[in-house]
């Protein structure tokens, strides 16, 4: 069975919330990857979202854009990333989800990408510029047993949420802001209602992401869903050497007893 699906089921059994941090592959050099993954694993993260740098990341805000630029300057390619993950897969247990744009996978070649992901033990993929309508081109990834995480947003209608969540794998990525990735001061008022709605409809766990940057945000969000994804803040913490803040965020997700 898929490692990610297993980890999420374990959370549900333990009545715990999931916490998935995002890091940019190759930011600070790929040699750093193993220690970052181990740190997150040991700090209690459920899985890791591993960003693939892309020249034109339209869904990302400034922090992840900058991390991508730094990574590209280091010469990081998707090939190198998968090779590195393959190398360290016996030392790292945490499920890995790749987050990358459609063109990176197309350029790699779908068949080779799927084969290499399987070899590297990749559990899932999140492709933010691949809506349901275009998903068919990557159906072979799903067939191979790698889950393709679908996103719903505040602008998705009830009807559309139903369509997207039907047949969803792994978890549903509920985007909690109208906008790009990155920290926000406060959430929109619609947030709670929206997450509740998605949760009611979805047959798989619902994780909230985009704009979650403080323990308060984490506590807010997990009242309504099964967990959170934190990106820009994690990158910032690694970048500035404030790894203990990452622990605080993960702790915030564990602190709340299910209502």
């Amino acid at each position: 069975m898929n490692k990610l699906t297993n980890a999420l089921e374990e959370c549900q059994t333990k009545q715990e919330k999931a916490f998935i941090p995002y890091i940019m592959a190759g930011d600070g050099g790929l040699d750093r990857l193993k220690s970052q993954l181990l740190f997150l694993e040991n700090s209690g993260a459920t899985a890791v979202e591993l960003g693939i740098p892309f020249s034109d990341p339209v869904a990302d805000g400034p922090v992840i854009q900058q991390a991508g630029i730094r990574s590209l300057k280091n010469g990081t390619t998707l090939k190198d990333v998968l090779k590195k993950v393959m190398e360290i897969k016996n030392d790292v247990n945490i499920p890995i989800i790749l987050m990358g744009y459609t063109n990176s996978i197309l350029a790699y070649g779908l068949k080779e990408f799927t084969t290499d992901c399987l070899q590297a033990g990749i559990s899932g993929c999140i492709i933010p510029d691949l809506p349901l309508e275009e998903e068919a081109i990557f159906s072979s990834i799903k067939t191979a047993g790698i889950v393709l995480i679908r996103l719903v947003t505040l602008t998705s209608s009830q009807e559309r949420i139903t369509e997207i969540t039907a047949g969803a794998e792994g978890f549903i990525y509920a985007v909690t802001v109208k906008g790009i990735t990155g920290a926000r001061d406060a959430f929109g008022e619609e947030l709670g209602g929206y997450l509740k709605k998605v949760k009611e409809i979805s047959p798989v766990p619902v994780l909230a992401g985009f704009g979650i940057s403080t323990p308060e945000h984490v506590r807010d969000a997990i009242q309504y869903c099964d967990g959170v994804i934190v990106g820009s803040k994690i990158i910032e913490c690694f970048e500035t050497g404030k790894e203990d803040r990452i622990r605080d965020l993960i702790q915030a997700s564990k602190g709340l007893v299910q209502k």
């Binding site: 510029d129 809506p131 275009e134 947003t153 906008g179």
Partner: peptide, 20 residues
Amino acid sequence: KTGHFGAYGGRFVPETLMAA
């Protein structure tokens, strides 16, 4: 009907834009 010219075109955008 789905906006494809043969294999080309389509709608490779974040979900947030699909409604628009």
